[in-house]
Simulated assay, not measured.
Amino acid sequence: MKAVGDRRRGFIVRDRRSRAIRSKAAPLAAYALAVTLVAAGATPAYAGADTERPTAPGPITVVAIDTTSVELTWAASTDNVGVVRYPVGAQFEDSGAQYSTDTNSIRITNLRPSRTYTFSVWALDAAGNSSVSNPTLRLTMPPGDDQPPSAPGQPVAYDVAATVVGLRWAHSVENVALDRYEVFRVDVGGTLTRVREVYQYPPVNSAQISGLAPNTTYTFVVRARDEVGHLSPLSAPVTVTTLPPPPSCAVRSVVRQWPDGFVAHLVVENTGSTTIDGWTMTWRFWASQQVQGIWGAKVVDRLNNSYLRVSNTGRNAVVPPGGTVSLGLVATGTQLPEEITLNGGLCTVADE
């Protein structure tokens, strides 16, 4: 019995069945190797060599929709090797999210009622080629909100300055999603002038109102608006008077310094034409520095760990035009009093 072939006239003659088996075995082995590579996370040679893009998916259509979710479908893309997934984008104004599916449909949840989204879809193949000229769908979700927000709490003024006022208030209660707060100035005759909009991404219940006139009385109210456009009642009003313009001032300083500390004596002069009745002063002071002694003033706090803020004592609150107030400081560190302000006004400094 001949296992492979026989010798005839000095030649080896191969069995045709054996040759046929071997000719089929080579592609099967190559296929098995490719399957093994894919299973191990490698990219087959044919995928790496694929540079042909999939065709664009067909138009996006809505299968089902409610107030917070939508099911979308589209005609499948074609590709010379095969589409592996469809990324799907959902864009609302300047924010968005991306999803993925390996079929030609998807259900997207956690959307917001009455919002208008732009959905997009594109195809990717195993080599990472992406389709072009992809479809989009602009879709407004059904309304799910038929209640207006409650009125915001009465604003409270803080950090009042000559031209800026801070306002904060208690949040409105909203059954779905709050879109923004609107801050209004109440003018003569009750006319409302909107001065700020505070969008709720993330939620914020405060605002700074700038561009005000010094030493002027203002009244403000706040109103809430939800994403559907429902308006709350107006809040109770708050009335606040801005501070006078910052005083002009000059500071003379006498400093004695050692390697890790100093003593400074400051004489502050009111160079303006208005009497100062109550004052705060700030100057540069590093977080690592410590106050070891102070006179003529009392420490209030540190601002952003970069400035020391002090205020008047009970005996030197009033500084008439041309008048002066004296204070002193013993502290650690090497940062001397610089960038000195008096009631928000930057003082000129002259060393002695």
Rank of each mutant, 00 (worst) to 15 (best):
residue 30 A to N: 13
residue 30 A to I: 00
residue 32 A to F: 03
residue 34 A to K: 02
residue 35 V to L: 11
residue 35 V to Q: 14
residue 36 T to I: 01
residue 37 L to T: 04
residue 39 A to Q: 14
residue 42 A to K: 09
residue 43 T to E: 12
residue 43 T to Y: 00
residue 44 P to R: 08
residue 45 A to G: 08
residue 47 A to R: 10
residue 49 A to P: 01
residue 51 T to C: 00
residue 54 P to C: 07
residue 57 P to H: 11
residue 57 P to T: 13
residue 58 G to K: 10
residue 59 P to N: 15
residue 61 T to L: 10
residue 76 A to Y: 01
residue 78 T to S: 14
residue 80 N to I: 11
residue 80 N to H: 00
residue 82 G to M: 02
residue 83 V to I: 07
residue 83 V to E: 08
residue 86 Y to H: 09
residue 88 V to R: 03
residue 93 E to S: 11
residue 95 S to I: 10
residue 96 G to N: 06
residue 96 G to S: 13
residue 97 A to Y: 00
residue 100 S to V: 13
residue 101 T to K: 04
residue 101 T to A: 14
residue 104 N to P: 04
residue 104 N to M: 01
residue 108 I to M: 07
residue 111 L to T: 06
residue 112 R to N: 09
residue 114 S to K: 03
residue 115 R to W: 08
residue 117 Y to S: 06
residue 117 Y to Q: 05
residue 118 T to A: 05
residue 121 V to C: 02
residue 122 W to F: 13
residue 124 L to H: 09
residue 126 A to S: 09
residue 130 S to M: 13
residue 132 V to K: 12
residue 133 S to D: 15
residue 134 N to V: 10
residue 136 T to E: 14
residue 136 T to W: 08
residue 138 R to M: 14
residue 139 L to K: 07
residue 140 T to D: 11
residue 142 P to K: 11
residue 143 P to S: 15
residue 146 D to W: 05
residue 147 Q to Y: 02
residue 150 S to Q: 04
residue 152 P to N: 05
residue 155 P to Y: 03
residue 158 Y to Q: 11
residue 159 D to T: 10
residue 160 V to K: 07
residue 161 A to N: 13
residue 163 T to W: 03
residue 163 T to P: 07
residue 164 V to N: 15
residue 166 G to P: 07
residue 168 R to K: 10
residue 168 R to P: 01
